[in-house]
Computed example of a mutant assay.
Amino acid sequence: MTLRPLHDRVIVKRLDQETTTKSGIILTDAAAEKPDQGEIKAVGDGKILDDGKVRPMAVKVGDRVLFGKYSGQAVKIDGEELLVMREEDLFAVVETK
């Protein structure tokens, strides 16, 4: 099954959080925080503005993004946990040099 987000929504897959601290301490799943980074898996067409025009999305499939720890609605598709959220819930796109 695939999801096609509507309007200004995106589908995000959380990236795995590191389970070892810089000092070498291994964290259990209960102690580890929810990751706040993810990869965009699908994007909608864009936000419909008051004048009826559609503002295109600023993110694209494959972008690595930052978002709030409790952002989005979690859904499980084919055993994979994904988040559905509005583009405005994203904080930034992570760009590597």
Rank of each mutant, 00 (worst) to 15 (best):
L3R: 01
G68T: 01
K41F: 00
F91V: 14
D8E: 14
G72I: 02
T2C: 03
V43G: 00
E39N: 02
T2H: 06
M57V: 03
A42S: 07
K34Q: 13
K22C: 13
R55M: 13
T20E: 14
E39W: 00
R64M: 08
V93L: 04
F91T: 15
K97P: 07
P5K: 06
V10E: 08
V10P: 04
V84T: 10
A31S: 10
V65Y: 00
K13S: 14
L3F: 09
E33M: 10
F67W: 04
F91N: 13
Q17C: 12
L90E: 11
K41G: 05
V12L: 05
D29S: 11
A74G: 02
K69R: 11
K34H: 13
G79K: 02
I77D: 06
G24V: 11
G24K: 09
V10T: 05
I26N: 10
E88M: 14
D8Y: 06
T2Q: 08
G24L: 07
D51C: 00
I25N: 12
L82W: 04
T96N: 08
G72F: 03
G46S: 04
V12R: 05
Y70E: 10
E88A: 12
A58M: 01
G46W: 01
T20N: 02
R64A: 01
T21K: 06
L15G: 00
T28I: 04
K47Y: 02
A32V: 07
I40P: 00
S23Q: 15
R64C: 07
R14G: 09
V61K: 07
I77W: 02
L3W: 03
G52T: 04
A32D: 05
G24C: 07
Q17T: 14
K76A: 08
R64H: 08
F91A: 15
E81W: 09
G44C: 06
S71H: 07
K47Q: 08
K60F: 04
S23P: 04
I26K: 15
Y70S: 13
G68I: 00
E87Q: 12
V65D: 01
G46C: 05
Y70K: 13
L83D: 04
T96Q: 11
V94M: 13
K69A: 13
V93K: 12
L6I: 14
K47V: 05
G46T: 04
T2A: 05
V59C: 02
Y70F: 09
K76R: 12
I77L: 08
L66N: 08
D51V: 02
R4P: 05
D16P: 12
V75W: 03
G68C: 00
K53R: 13
